[in-house]
Design a protein around this nucleic acid. Structure first.
Lengths: 383, 383
DNA sequence: GTTTGTTCGTACGCTTTACTAACAAACATG
DNA sequence: CATGTTTGTTAGTAAAGCGTACGAACAAAC
């Protein structure tokens, strides 16, 4: 869900400077590998981990000892099985011992946040009305919400994740978010200073995509289309989010779709994807429709436009899946069906026929949970 | 340039199995790091490399000794400068001591190959007519061409790179290339068995994109559009090629563009990108045009369609650059101009205004040179 | 009840890797 | 000629993972 405007001089993403790699980096990679296996499967023994990772039992024991020392892993008892041999000591991530804070700044008029457990489950919810505030004022509201959440956490925090609208660079600075009146707001720094916790900030659609990747059922390469006040997308290729050279990847809302005009958009163009698909336009269209059939036509038209926009992107990237996130009552059903039909009619089944298009199952909390997934990914290397 | 059909049950790209990392992997990474710096800058001393990479002089000396032992690096004499201190011994990649073989199978009726030096310069050219052969027969022609090139090489080979039309998986098997009558042809294995050399096979558009990345002026994230008998694309994000989940990334030729119909395509749909942009369609359109003005209109219409197709892709990925490769007399000029204009009219300048669209400067040899770049990348880690 | 085989986790020593510290060689400058 | 600088190399050290070996704990077979 993106802002209609962004600053022209956004910094270029630094090209991978090809840094040296030391053995200790390998160590930290293997540490993450252990955590990933524990995170997914859970309840594995050291010997299981050795088999799973290819590392030796000795190395695994060493890594696990380190992780237990850091409080990230706990022994949860013995495996009770009728197998011969010494019974295994089961390990798991210290799920009860840590919490994550996830915040969603993308809603209109309200900031939503939560204390989450390591599985993305919500422990405590909080909201803060923004009352049309802008700039520093609304930033202060966000910081206060995070402070309240930190105070409400019932276990040590792993970190704080924030999904913000607009363009966000890799340092967690919101380069531009017109809806909040933000321009070059160093949100990550701001919240880190206020709480002393590790903070990750990313675009809300990217966060949502990560949630679908971590907690939803998305596998492989996929794009998440987020429909709300605007239209934005988050993209995950090979397990890694795509940010774009100027951090504006997924800014699809103001791309013109089709060659037959369309409504005038706030950006000045006609036929932007937002003029077909955004929630305000959809609800307006539905309200103006006299009967059920024409309401269905509104939804189908929007779905068709989505399919038209998807075709070249899926063609270029050969995606596995497109996930749609937003109000179910609007998006599920005719709209999604029309999108699929249109997409299929416009691409070659041999290349892209196995693409699946579906609604997200994560509902309203998708950004908060995605923000939590960002923390998991950053702190544990779990993806 | 891709095949109109591909098999339906293409294998899914294996998802990163999250392998363990050993210190020796770090070593090989640092080895590549040294080679990359030498490859680009050239003529650096060990101390220079240490400063450049952040590794110590000791480690660099060790790595360089290994690389000299492998014949990949040579000392090229002392630096003659009026600086105090011991004069530096300059190093460079052993450019004269190695050759690469690059092959382009994407042309109609002829396979083109070359012996190249490490900078992508062409030392010896060869061609082989295919005379409409198909299947195993045409594969044998390709293998023989490679054999002849190997025999013609005047220095030890670093490896063999092949750019093939169609869908190619990571193991170098051509899953599908209708123009050649290929289906599941293990080309890499075939050529490796015939020559005993390291072989890399990839889609021709991906190879071309890599050439533009390595030898051309493309920086950052970009897409290369290859216009020939068909239309295909190669995509490089963050310095790495994008293959797609079923290796069909870049298969844009049979995506329908626009919402106002279009000519009937061989695939059965109307208005595929190929029906606007491919060389056969362009030349046919130009031949049918009565005067210069209407010939220009043909080119502009094609450019517009390209711009329409580009808009959602660039929007989703926030690319820096789009490079077009193909017959200059058709593509450069009105067509490219129209593509740029159309693209700008359909996206937000604030997000994607700094996109550049231009012709490739690598000409006809782009695929062969890209194939050589694949070898460089695979064998030296140079990208 | 004992033996056998299996599995688990750990102790020890070794190899690889890159680092720090120190030093000789070679040059410019005063 | 003495001094300072830069280069490349020679030790010795710390980290990481491996292979081997071993004790502990259990099931199954006799």
């Amino acid at each position: 869900m993106s802002a209609p405007e962004a600053q022209r001089s956004a910094p270029l993403r630094a090209l991978r400077p090809s840094a040296k790699v030391l053995p200790e980096h390998a160590r930290s990679h293997n540490r993450s590998l252990v955590l990933q296996n524990l995170y997914r499967g859970g309840l594995l023994s050291r010997a299981d981990l050795a088999r799973e990772t290819g590392l030796t039992r000795v190395t695994i024991s060493d890594l696990v000892a380190e992780l237990i020392g850091d409080g990230l892993v706990v022994e949860t008892g013995q495996r009770e099985e009728g197998r011969p041999g010494k019974p295994a000591i089961l390990l798991d991530i210290n799920r009860a011992g840590h919490r994550i804070i996830g915040v969603d700044l993308s809603d209109t008029g309200v900031f939503r946040g939560a204390v989450l457990d390591l599985d993305g489950g919500i422990v405590t919810r909080m909201e803060a009305e923004t009352d049309g505030a802008e700039g520093d004022e609304v930033a202060a509201i966000a910081v206060q919400l995070v402070r309240d959440l930190v105070a409400a956490a019932d276990a040590p925090l792993l970190g704080i994740g924030i999904g913000s609208p607009g363009i966000v660079d890799l340092a967690g600075t919101v380069l531009s978010a017109p809806n909040l009146g933000w321009s070059d707001v160093a949100l990550q720094q701001l919240v880190a200073d206020a709480t002393g916790q590790p903070v990750v900030v990313a675009n809300d659609a990217n966060a949502a995509a990560l949630a679908e990747h971590s907690f939803g059922s998305a596998v492989g390469d996929f794009m998440l289309i987020r429909v709300g006040r605007g239209v934005g997308a988050g993209l995950i290729l090979g397990g890694t989010p795509v940010y774009g050279s100027r951090f504006a990847a997924g800014e699809l809302g103001h791309v013109v779709v089709g060659t037959d005009g369309g409504d005038l958009c706030v950006c000045g163009k006609h036929g932007c994807l937002e003029t077909w698909l955004s929630v305000p336009h959809l609800t307006a269209g539905l309200a103006a429709a006299p009967d059920a059939a024409s309401r269905d036509a509104v939804l189908r038209r929007a779905g068709e436009r989505l399919g038209i926009a998807l075709a070249p992107v899926v063609g270029a990237l050969n995606l596995d899946e497109v996930v749609i996130s937003g109000p179910v009552e609007l998006l599920d059903g005719s709209l999604t069906e029309a999108a699929i039909e249109t997409f299929r009619a416009r691409t070659m089944a041999e290349f892209h026929g196995d693409l699946t298009v579906r609604m997200s199952s994560l509902g309203q909390d998708i950004v908060m949970r995605g923000a939590a997934a960002m923390v998991l990914s950053g702190r544990l290397g779990v993806s």
